[in-house]
């Protein structure tokens, strides 16, 4: 397969607005906006490149008020998926993000990274990560979202990541006001709600089947 310089991809469906004055690279194959690089599966050997010794610690070990979020990942046959990677990103307990992209300014909550990366290797099909329970976050339109964690799941057999969210069963009032949850039928909503345990919360991910987790297009 070689590059065909005349095989021009269609332009975006919305009209191009030359706000930035930037007009693409000038190569024949590029539309006015640069085409994004297509995704590919992590494959079975992701552990080589993506293992971090401190991956599980979205909050530093020993941080007061820390919780373990644990769960299992199941495929469409009901079998555990022993080679997936779960990544999480979330707000701190005050609803801030340690990110300069937050228009309110980056927060710096002690001991909080906000990001975890764990694989479902040991025990097979299971993951666990240590974090702080997120606070409520503005929805940008005058309301508040319920406490939630954004999740990306990668695995052999997935050509792109799949995205879901974790909510919390003991936040019934906030959950009832959450625009994303409100948009889902009751039985589907339950697939996103983690239940309390001795040291945190638990939520299983079902890639397919009757209990298929709600996945999001972002």
């Amino acid at each position: 397969m070689t590059l065909d310089p005349l095989d021009v991809p269609p332009d975006p469906t919305t009209p191009f607005q030359p706000r930035s004055g930037r007009r693409g690279t000038g190569f024949l194959t590029e539309p006015l906006r640069l085409g994004t690089t297509p995704s590919a599966t992590v494959g079975p050997y992701l552990a080589i490149g993506l293992t971090w010794p401190d991956g599980a610690w979205a909050a530093a070990e020993g941080t007061g008020g820390g919780i373990w979020i644990r769960g299992r990942v199941f495929d469409g046959a009901g079998d555990l998926v022993p080679d997936a990677m779960v990544e999480t990103w979330q707000a701190d307990p005050d609803g801030g993000f340690p990110s300069p992209e937050d228009p309110r300014g980056a927060s710096s909550y002690p001991g909080f990274r906000g990001y975890a990366r764990v694989q479902t290797i040991d025990p097979p099909g299971e993951f666990g990560l240590f974090t702080l329970k997120p606070g409520r976050v503005p929805d940008g339109e005058g309301g508040l979202q319920a406490p939630h964690i954004d999740v990306s799941l990668f695995a052999r057999g997935l050509l792109d990541r799949v995205v879901t969210r974790i909510y919390f069963a003991d936040e019934a009032e906030a959950n009832a006001e959450d625009a994303v949850l409100k948009g889902l039928p009751e039985d589907r909503r339950q697939t996103l709600i983690a239940t309390p345990t001795d040291d945190g919360y638990r939520l299983d991910v079902h890639l397919q089947g009757d209990r298929e987790t709600v996945f999001f297009a972002v």
Partner: peptide, 20 residues
């Protein structure tokens, strides 16, 4: 057996999605 079969639900880009 791994790729979800249901159509994904659109998630608007809020603070959690535009930060990293």
């Amino acid at each position: 057996l791994r790729a979800p079969l249901r159509t994904p639900v659109d998630l608007p880009h809020r603070l959690t999605e535009v930060t990293g």
